[in-house]
Simulated scan of single mutants.
Amino acid sequence: MGTTSPQPPHVPAGTVLELSKEDWRYGGFTLFLRVESVRDDLSSYYDDEWVWVSGQQLARDGTPLGQLDALVRVSALPGAEDPAALGEQFD
């Protein structure tokens, strides 16, 4: 039997994420991101807890600020399961 890798939750294009500085890497500030795509693989380099999300960075008022690829904590995405439960599911 094959081993199935965990998948990030489905986040539809157009969803606006509000990510605290702890929920995405390398920014150090709250990020508003209109999702364009979520990579369908979790990075084993980041212990399957982070995923790349591409989208349009937004100002607080919704003004587009440019394209951004963000490394986002899976548990911060809508529809994410408890990370401990995800691990149990694929052990």
Rank of each mutant, 00 (worst) to 15 (best):
G55P: 03
R60L: 01
P9M: 01
T63I: 01
F29G: 00
L58M: 10
D40M: 10
L77K: 04
E18N: 14
W50N: 02
E36R: 12
L42C: 08
A80R: 00
T4S: 10
F29I: 02
V38E: 02
A84P: 00
L65C: 03
G28T: 06
E22N: 15
T4E: 09
R39K: 11
R25A: 13
L68V: 06
S54A: 08
D61F: 07
M1N: 10
T15V: 08
Y45T: 09
G87C: 00
P12K: 09
P8F: 08
P12F: 02
P6D: 05
V53I: 08
A59Y: 04
E81T: 04
A70C: 04
P6Q: 01
L77F: 11
T30A: 12
Q57C: 12
V74Q: 05
V53D: 10
E81W: 05
S54E: 15
W52D: 14
R39C: 00
Y26A: 13
G87H: 10
G14Y: 07
D23T: 12
V72Y: 10
Y45E: 13
Q89S: 01
W24D: 09
F32A: 10
L17M: 14
D61E: 03
A76R: 09
G2C: 01
G62E: 11
V72A: 00
S54M: 05
H10R: 11
R73W: 05
Q57M: 11
G28V: 14
E49W: 02
T3A: 05
L68I: 00
G27T: 06
P8C: 10
L71R: 11
T3C: 11
D61L: 11
A84E: 12
G87V: 01
A13V: 05
V38I: 10
V11N: 03
Y46D: 12
L42W: 05
Q67R: 06
V74Y: 10
L58I: 12
T30I: 10
L31S: 05
D41I: 05
G87N: 04
L42E: 09
V51Y: 11
Y45L: 06
Y45M: 13
E88R: 13
P9Y: 06
P83T: 00
G79N: 03
G2V: 15
D69V: 09
D69Y: 01
V35I: 02
Q57F: 02
F29K: 13
D40L: 06
T63A: 10
D61W: 11
V53Q: 08
R73P: 02
Y26G: 05
G55R: 09
E18V: 11
L42K: 11
Y46K: 06
V74G: 10
Q89H: 00
F29P: 01
V11S: 07
P64S: 03
P12S: 01
V11R: 08
V11A: 08
A85S: 03
P12E: 08
D41T: 09
E49D: 15
Q57R: 09
K21A: 15
S37D: 15
Q57Y: 00
R73M: 06
A70L: 04
R25G: 14
A80Y: 02
E18A: 14
P8K: 04
L77R: 04
G28Q: 09
G28H: 09
V11Q: 02
E88T: 01
Q67K: 15
L71V: 06
P8W: 09
A84W: 00
R25N: 12
G27S: 13
V74L: 08
D69E: 09
A59E: 11
D91N: 15
S5M: 11
S75T: 03
D91P: 01
L31K: 03
G2Y: 13
D47L: 13
A76I: 10
T3Y: 05
A13F: 08
